[in-house]
Nucleic acid binder design. Structure first.
Lengths: 158, 158
DNA sequence: CTTGGTGCAAACATTTTGCAGCACA
DNA sequence: TGTGCTGCAAAATGTTTGCACCAAG
C-alpha cells in the first residue's frame, strides 16, 4: 500500500470511494456520527497506514512512541475500534493465534496457505480470485474493498 | 477405572462426512508424539464434533458439564491446542471479534462476504474455489483440508 | 455549560502456566 | 520409577472501561 499524505484536518466532501484518501474516509465517518478527527486519531491512522500487512496493536504503541508522539493505549484501542466501524481495518488471527489488525480498505488481497502441521504461512498470488470476487459482489450489489483467502493444508505425508 | 475404551465415535450420528474418523486422526497424531488419547480428550473431541460452525471455548465447558462430564478448563484449552496441532481445529474471529474455534478437518468450506458497514455476514457458495484451491495446493505438494474465503465489502452507497 | 476526547489505572475476558497429585507402563 | 495427564488457582495476554480533567463549540 502506498504512502498517504499526513492527514489534514480540513473540510471534507464526497470523493470516489476507493481512491479517496483514507483520512477523508475516516473523517467523514466520524463526522457522520458527531465525532471528531483529533490529532491523536490522525496519528493512529497514520501509523496504521505505515504498517505493511497485519500488525499488532502493540506495534502501533511503539511506532507512535518512536515518532515522539505519546498516544495512550486506551486511545489507540478506541481509535482502532472506530476504524473497524469505518471499514478501514479488521481484526484477524495469524497462524500463531496472535491477534492482529489489518487494513482492509483498498488493501492488497491477502491470500495464504496455512500449513496446519507446521504453522508455516505461505503467501500466494491468485489474480483470478479478484475477478471471481468482483463478480460475486456485483451479484449482491456490493463493492468489495478487499478479501482474504486462507487454505488450510498439510504436507502430503503428515 | 475408566479403562473402558471411550466411545470411539458412536453417539455422533451428526458427524460431517469425513474420510477417516476424527478420533483416529487425533489418536494417531497423539501417539506419534508419545501422548495419550485419554477419556478427557475423547470427550472434548466429541463435544467439538457436535458443534455446528464456529464455537467458543466456553461452549465446550458448558456442553461437557451438561453431559455430566467435568473436564477442567485447563484440560479443554490444552486439548484444543493439541487439536490445532493435529490440524483438526483452527482459531478464528467472527465479525464481532469474539475468538472462536472451528473445525477445519473435513469441514465444509467457509466462504463469506463480510459487510464492513453493517457487520452482516453473508454465506456464499463458490464451487470453483475448491477447484482453484486444489490446483494451487498440488503445485506446492500439499493436501488441502479446508479453506476460508472472506470478502470485505460495503453497500454501493456507503 | 454541554458534548466529546484523553490518559491513567483498574477491570475484564480469554488463554496459559506452575504445581501437586494421580495413573499407567 | 518415569512419563504423561489432570484440576486448581495464579499469571499472562490483549482489550475495555470508569473516572477526572481538558478542549472546542
Amino acid at each position: 500500500m502506498d504512502l498517504q499524505p499526513i492527514p489534514d484536518m480540513n473540510e471534507t466532501d464526497s470523493v470516489p470511494p476507493i481512491f479517496e484518501p483514507l483520512c477523508a474516509v475516516f473523517r467523514r465517518r466520524l463526522k457522520a456520527d458527531g465525532q471528531k478527527y483529533t490529532p491523536e486519531r490522525a496519528r493512529v491512522l497514520d501509523a496504521v497506514i505505515r504498517m505493511e500487512g497485519p500488525f499488532e496493536a502493540e506495534q502501533l504503541v511503539e511506532d507512535l512512541r518512536a515518532s515522539g508522539y505519546r498516544v495512550s493505549k486506551a486511545t489507540i484501542y478506541r481509535t482502532i475500534k472506530l476504524m473497524q466501524d469505518a471499514g478501514i481495518v479488521q481484526r484477524v488471527l495469524g497462524g500463531d493465534d496472535v491477534p492482529r489488525y489489518q487494513m482492509i480498505y483498498g488493501a492488497k488481497p491477502d491470500d495464504t496457505i496455512v500449513r496446519v502441521d507446521t504453522d508455516e504461512v505461505i503467501s500466494i498470488d491468485i489474480p483470478e480470485l479478484i475477478e471471481l470476487r468482483d463478480k460475486i459482489c456485483a451479484k449482491y450489489g456490493l463493492s468489495p474493498s478487499s478479501h482474504r483467502f486462507q487454505i488450510f493444508a498439510t504436507g502430503n505425508d503428515a
